[in-house]
Amino acid sequence: MKAINKRNITVLAVIVFLVFLAVERTTKSEPEAVPAIQQSSEPESGMNAGLLAPAFSLQEGGKSYAVGGSRDKAVLLNFWASWCDPCQQEAPTLNALALKYKNVLDVYGINVTSQDYKPNAERFVRKYMLAFPIMYDLKGEVFDKYKGMVFPTNVLVDKNGVISEVILGFLSPEELEKKIITLTGS
């Protein structure tokens, strides 16, 4: 019964998100022209491909992890919850990809603890022996900043700090690896 309820909640969240996107697209008007002196060569920050990834910093285990701006490696941000079946399915893939591409890609696992139970999340990390940094978004502030709506949400950010793609839901290991190869040029 619990699995059916979780699946129904996930399906409902996806439907709500898709309706939101459809309404937003139909109600959006043409952007106003911005005078040339106000335009910047840097993209604005936001949650869409081509925009700078919203900046944040989370601490875990005495170490600080930050996103925002240029960096040495591309980064994959994985927003997850321990009760999420697709998150459980993709955990081994993320682990393998983090190890395989460690020289060109940082993988940051961000447990949205505001929608989870931290002891369960900690058990999840141990169960899947995750080999990449795991942070706990205790109040959901980072997830909100990234306008998160579904689990898992993977955000691919290039070395310049620009979002290359937002992936909602589960991808096959092969599809995800293709996207990482495109992102990193590996």
Rank of each mutant, 00 (worst) to 15 (best):
G46R: 10
A49N: 08
D106M: 03
V150I: 12
A33T: 08
V14F: 12
G169F: 07
N154C: 05
S45A: 12
A98I: 09
D158M: 05
Q89P: 10
W80M: 06
A81V: 10
K178G: 04
E90S: 06
V166F: 13
Y146D: 04
V104N: 06
N8G: 12
S40P: 02
D72E: 14
L130M: 12
G140D: 05
F143M: 07
N160V: 09
F20W: 04
I4E: 13
K127R: 12
I180H: 01
V34M: 05
P119G: 01
Y108I: 05
V142F: 01
Y136S: 05
P43W: 02
Q89V: 14
N95L: 13
D85K: 15
Y146W: 04
M135L: 10
M1W: 14
V142N: 05
L51P: 03
Q38S: 09
I163S: 12
L105F: 07
K6F: 14
N78K: 08
A33S: 09
N48W: 15
T27A: 04
R25Y: 13
D116G: 04
M135C: 02
G140S: 10
L183A: 07
L183E: 02
A3M: 09
G140R: 01
D85Q: 10
Q88S: 12
P92I: 14
Q59R: 13
N48S: 15
P119M: 06
K145P: 00
V19Q: 06
S114H: 08
L21W: 12
L156N: 06
S70E: 15
G46N: 11
L105G: 05
S41P: 00
S45H: 06
D116P: 00
M129I: 07
N48M: 14
R71D: 07
Y101A: 03
R123K: 11
F124Q: 00
E32I: 09
A36N: 09
K2N: 15
T182P: 08
E30C: 03
L76S: 08
E175T: 14
F17K: 05
N120M: 09
V166I: 11
M129H: 15
V11G: 12
W83L: 01
T27E: 08
D116A: 01
T27C: 09
S64C: 09
T182D: 05
N111Y: 00
F151Q: 04
E141N: 10
L77P: 10
F79A: 03
M47H: 13
V107Y: 00
I181T: 10
P31H: 06
R71I: 08
G61Q: 04
Y117T: 11
F170A: 14
K145T: 06
F17A: 14
E60L: 08
N95G: 07
V155Y: 07
G68E: 11
P92D: 00
Q115D: 11
S57Y: 04
G169A: 07
S164L: 13
S164E: 15
L176P: 03
G185I: 10
E24C: 14
V155S: 01
A91R: 01
